[in-house]
């Protein structure tokens, strides 16, 4: 073989193996992101990963409960990504999905942002603010646990459809770490107990009937004016 051919074989084989392995990695990530099955991610974002999982099971009557920590996630995105997120949210809420956002560390920036969405979107979007300073001790502990750990629950009636668990999502980051998505058919045994444990906690913290002192719901501006006037 000529020197050129030898060099071509060696570097070509290197590039080929590198390319194949890289392609395998991307194919694996694509499959985990786009399929409707369970998946684990070291890092993931709600926009590019969770939305795709929800899309598979989005239908009228589905309820999504989303603890959102400080509620600043959409504000960490650029304008295009934020518009995309809002578009998805609008599409789901308009199609009859009940979408509940739970903010466990309320702040002016997040409240202002979510208020505009509550004003603009149909009533299928509910936004709750949980103030741990006003909460009973037991509730305050749970609110604190939901600050950076975000268990997003998707259900219809009492039937679990999916569970998206972000082990850590820092307030001003668009990235969540150690994320696990458990699909409906894998919510059995331990995962089922886990799902309903999270559901119990979230229902208790956001139970409007019980009127806990820590709970505030963002109402559309028009409704808030009417309620104040009444």
């Amino acid at each position: 073989m000529s020197d050129t051919l030898q060099l071509f074989v060696l570097s070509g084989a290197t590039a080929l193996i590198f390319g194949c392995l890289l392609l395998g990695v991307f194919a694996n990530r694509y499959r985990r992101t786009h399929s409707n099955g369970s998946a684990r991610f070291i890092t993931a974002s709600a926009l590019s990963n969770l939305s795709r999982k929800i899309q598979h099971i989005a239908e009228p009557g589905v309820e999504v409960l989303m603890p959102a920590g400080a509620g600043l996630y959409p504000l960490t995105l650029n304008a295009k990504e934020r518009a995309e997120t809002e578009h998805d949210l609008e599409k789901w809420v308009t199609s009859g999905i009940q979408y509940t956002v739970i903010i466990t560390s309320p702040n002016d920036e997040a409240v202002q942002y979510w208020q505009t969405l509550v004003d603009r979107l149909p009533s299928g979007l509910k936004v709750f603010l949980l103030d741990r300073a006003k909460a009973f001790e037991e509730d305050a502990i749970e609110i604190e646990r939901l600050d950076r750990f975000h268990p997003v629950l998707i259900l219809k009636g009492q039937k679990p459809l999916g569970m998206w668990l972000e082990a850590v999502h820092d307030p001003r980051s668009s990235i969540a770490y150690n994320v696990e998505y458990v699909a409906s058919n894998d919510i059995v045994d331990f995962q089922r107990e886990r799902f309903f444990r999270f559901l119990r906690v979230i229902r208790k913290l956001t139970d409007e009937g019980r009127r806990p002192p820590h709970l505030t719901r963002l109402l559309p501006a028009a409704a808030a004016i009417t309620s104040t006037a009444a």
């Binding site: 070291i42 749970e142 646990r145 750990f149 082990a167 990235i175 444990r197 979230i202």
Partner: peptide, 20 residues
């Protein structure tokens, strides 16, 4: 991984990447 507390409802310990 470092332990980051426990899951809501008093579940099992939570672990996440040490460096983020």
């Amino acid at each position: 991984l470092d332990q980051m507390g426990v899951e809501p409802g008093g579940g099992r310990p939570l672990y996440a990447l040490r460096y983020r």
